[in-house]
């Protein structure tokens, strides 16, 4: 589904990401962990064509991502609040995003109903503007907007941070559901080793832009990661 070959990104001569080869097959849930500055967000931005690579390329379904639009209809993503249109109400925002993917009003209403539990009753129907919501609720809105198009690929950057404990558990359940029922390809970065091992069946550890570990999640994965990150 996603192929990365010889991908390099440097800022002012300093290489921040260097991935010679990486394949993410369809339906895989791909977890990305690493300390701050390891290159996680940079990697996601390169996949989403938000920044330009210095060398190499990312292919989605065999097509180059850079300067192309063919991947957009089936890719949902939420990296940070720069993805939100914060002067809209959640309802207006979901409707706007839904229309971009040719969803009818009925589709959108149905989708929002299915998200009601995740929203914990605080978002649907609210007349508040997105910029007036708490960080946690903003994150929920962003994640929901990424899912509204029923994408085949979902890219989330640290989806668990800023969420309250119950919402974290709900999000985990939601992501596992999407994986088993829809066979969605997921790329998720996280600082929380517990969550990421629970959601993802493959974990890649980045350090200073390099892939240092690539593990299929098993019983010992959490321990392995904890020893790796222990100081």
């Amino acid at each position: 589904m996603i192929q990365v070959s010889n991908l390099q990104k440097a800022y002012n001569g300093v290489t921040v990401l260097d991935i010679p080869e990486l394949n993410i097959p369809k339906g895989e849930s791909f977890g990305l962990v690493g300390n701050n500055g390891a290159g996680k967000t940079t990697f996601f931005r390169l996949i989403l064509d938000l920044i330009e690579a210095n060398a190499g390329e990312v292919l989605i379904e065999g097509k180059k991502v850079a300067r192309s639009e063919s991947w957009k209809p089936f890719t949902g993503s939420f990296l940070d609040e720069g993805f939100l249109i914060d002067f809209l109400t959640p309802g207006e925002y979901f409707k706007f995003v839904g229309k971009l993917y040719n969803k009818s009003d009925g589709d959108i209403a149905l989708f929002l109903e299915s998200m009601e539990e995740f929203f914990n009753g605080e978002i649907n129907g609210s007349k508040k503007l997105i910029r007036d919501f708490s960080k946690g609720n903003q994150k929920k809105i962003g994640i929901a907007a990424a899912l509204i198009s029923e994408p085949q690929i979902l890219i989330l950057d640290e989806p668990f941070t800023a969420l309250d404990p119950s919402s974290q558990i709900r999000l985990k359940r939601l992501l596992n559901d999407l994986q088993t029922n829809r066979n969605m390809t997921m790329l998720i970065s996280s600082h929380d080793l517990n969550h990421v091992t629970e959601v993802c069946n493959r974990i890649v550890v980045l350090e200073k832009g390099l892939v240092v570990k690539d593990i299929a999640t098993g019983e010992d994965t959490l321990k392995e990661l904890e020893t790796y990150f222990a100081v």
Binding site: K72, T75, L84, I85
Partner: peptide
Amino acid sequence: SSHFDGILTKNIPT
């Protein structure tokens, strides 16, 4: 500018 990344990644042809 505050939601430019959203514009670029959502299904909006240039």
